[in-house]
Amino acid sequence: MAFTGDGGLRVSFDCGEVGPSGAGAYMVTVPKKTVTPWLSGFGKRAQQQPLTPSRSLDLGTADVPEPAVPSHTASDDDTDCKKVKCVALTFDDGPAVPETATLLTYLAQYKARATFFTTGQNVAAHPDLVRAAARAGNEIGNHSWNHPDLTKLTPEQIASRLNRTNTAVKAAPGQEPTLFRPPYGAINTQVRAATRLSPVLWDVDTEDWEYPRRRQGRPDGHGQDAGQRRRPDARHPPHLGGRRPSDPAHPDRPRLPLRHRQPPARHPLTGRPPAG
């Protein structure tokens, strides 16, 4: 997004984000009189920059340092999921500040591991958090570059979104992902054919992204707990990017044996021999 010389707001969309993917990129300009009432104080100051440029822009907030990146290291895990009930915890859309760092601390506290399905643009913004997650024994997966519906893209566009993310992840912790989770769970034969990554969906959705709406519609203010809908070997996908960690994953009420192991013969999420 960018403000125009007359105070309007220009918004650009990549291929496939809106409209048919074959139509290419879109650009929409919202007139000044339409966009101004919706702007925050900072937005209005930014809007004035093209009109009356200045050498500095008042951000309106104090300079608050980012929280420290966790330094947890992987602990030994000899859990045998053939003998005890296990779930595979997966977290989507991150890394995000401060949610990912907080979550890593909780996982380490309970000696749990998870798979983080990350978006490439967030990996590029926070590579230190990706390194921290990998150092703590968690697996890093691919969740596309910017969370489009992959089934609406061309094979070339699908490959580009996934390959860019793999490159970003490899540059952070140094290990290229072997798994990917298609945004929205949208997958078809064309998506599968565009990549060698193994797709991973889910068994139980915590629906944490829907919590604000649910609180408005439910008298108790809570959605159904994922713990009530779990089953052995289930995969739970709470979300991170810009959202708070989901309540069911919050460690102030741990009720599951949160162990994520990686036996040499079979991958814990796909059930198939690990790639490479």
Score class of each variant (00 low, 15 high):
F3A: 02
T4K: 05
T4C: 00
C15Q: 15
E17I: 06
A23S: 15
A25K: 15
V30W: 03
V35D: 01
G41E: 11
G43H: 10
Q49A: 08
Q49T: 02
P50Q: 06
T52S: 14
L57S: 04
L59K: 14
G60K: 15
T61R: 15
A62I: 06
E66C: 04
D76Q: 12
C81F: 01
K85F: 02
K85I: 09
V87H: 09
D92G: 03
V97L: 01
Y110F: 13
K111C: 00
R113A: 00
R113D: 00
G120F: 07
N122D: 04
P127S: 11
V130E: 09
E139I: 14
W145D: 04
N146M: 02
D149L: 01
K152M: 05
T154R: 08
S160I: 04
N163T: 15
A172W: 01
G174R: 13
F180V: 10
L197Y: 05
T206C: 00
W209T: 00
P212A: 03
R213V: 05
P219K: 13
Q224A: 02
R230M: 12
A234H: 03
G242V: 08
P245I: 12
H250R: 15
H250C: 11
P251N: 04
P254E: 03
P257C: 13
P257M: 11
P264L: 11
H267Q: 06
R272A: 14
P273S: 13
G276L: 08
